[in-house]
Amino acid sequence: MKNKRTELQVSAISNGTVIDHISSENTFRVFQILNLDQAKNQVYVGTNLDSKKLGKKGIIKISGRFFKPDEINKIALAAPQATLIEIRDYVISKKEKIVLPKTVEKVVKCYNPKCVTNHQQIPTRFNIVKDHHGVTKLACHYCEKTMVQEDIIFV
């Protein structure tokens, strides 16, 4: 029984990307920011799966697609503790924990309505900072306002 379930969770794709260890509540957020509803290839989405690390986790497998650094930064913001696994010819060619970059450009909108980036055609730029409670925040390079991850709207 146990084996069967494990098998289902890791059912293989021949070429593509697996995003594992997404915290369950963020699974559909990751799905959305990567525009996977537009995907032409097979996409598997699992949520509330058992996980030793997270208790419950989400997983997304996308066949025939590999993500660019900008997209990986989006995943990092939506699901900071996720693991990215790339598979080529049934073999894992890359497996890494997604880490938050120091800065993100062009992927997030500033939540400050008076920010110049919301009025002029300017690529946004944020520094990723931690406050004194260790909470990750995004500081706008332009208006200098900081926002928490819940306020993030992706471009």
């Binding site: 920010c115 980036t117 208006c143």
Partner: peptide, 22 residues
């Protein structure tokens, strides 16, 4: 607009003095 002076300083070939950005 907040941040307009930082942006101006990045595109301007001459120095900018911010006299208040929002």
């Amino acid at each position: 607009l907040d941040g307009s002076a930082r942006y101006a300083s990045e595109v301007s070939p001459v120095p900018i003095i911010n006299a208040g950005d929002g």
